[in-house]
Design a binder for these strands. Structure first.
Length: 193
DNA sequence: CAAGAGATCATCT
DNA sequence: GATGATCTCTTGA
């Protein structure tokens, strides 16, 4: 049986809000990638917000280009790009059209079942880092631009978890030392273990 | 443990 | 031609 677990695909309105709110509220939601009959899923534990024209850490601060176009588009679409020649990063676009913003999904926790001598063990495994995450989820450029609120391939679910604010940590974002006054903004959200 | 470097390429100058 | 919203491995204290 499937039990009575709530599973609600996040709608566009969820992503049309302020980027910092979306980044905060994505913690505890479930990222799902379906490849044929195979499902890869995990609970989101770490995000970062990139928003506005001035945020020097955001690709969009360099202007509207072919690559960043998607960040200026409607909320709920995936923004996926290649970084350092070998890793993909998965973002979801937020806020209104024409305002460039997205949330980078940096970490998830997955359930892993291992079978050892006829005994089933369930364990949680953490995947830290956007590059490792996309590698695990088998996400690449082919999914760039996809509408995560309509897709049956890639989406995000609410399974009814409420995350209290005391279990959330905020820190500056990673890998953006060049971002001047924006490098110290606490726009990274982490679900404490 | 911390620090440094290499991998590797789409995107922008 | 330079660089980056990263990761992994190596070196050295």
């Amino acid at each position: 049986m499937f039990g009575n677990q709530i599973k609600i695909k996040l709608k566009r309105e969820f992503f049309e809000r302020k980027t910092l709110v979306v980044a905060r509220e994505l913690l505890g939601k479930y990222l799902i990638h379906r490849i044929g009959t195979k499902i890869i899923s995990g609970m989101i534990t770490e995000t970062e917000a990139y928003h506005g024209f001035r945020d020097l850490a955001s690709h969009a601060s360099r202007g509207r280009t072919k690559r960043t176009e998607i960040m200026f588009g409607p909320a709920g679409h995936a923004y996926i790009y290649l970084i350092y020649g070998m890793y993909y990063c998965l973002n979801v676009v937020t806020e209104r059209e024409e305002y460039p913003a997205a949330v980078l999904i940096r970490g998830v926790e997955i359930d892993q079942k291992s079978n050892l001598k006829n005994k089933n063990f369930k364990s949680k495994i953490k995947i830290d880092g956007p590059g490792k995450l996309t590698r695990h989820f088998q996400i690449d450029k082919n999914l760039n631009g996809i509408d995560v609120t309509a897709s049956r391939e890639l989406w995000i679910e609410d399974r009814g978890l409420r995350i209290p604010s005391r279990s959330i940590k905020r820190t500056p974002r990673i890998g953006i030392d060049y971002a001047g006054p924006y490098k110290d903004k606490k726009w990274r959200f982490i679900l404490k273990p």
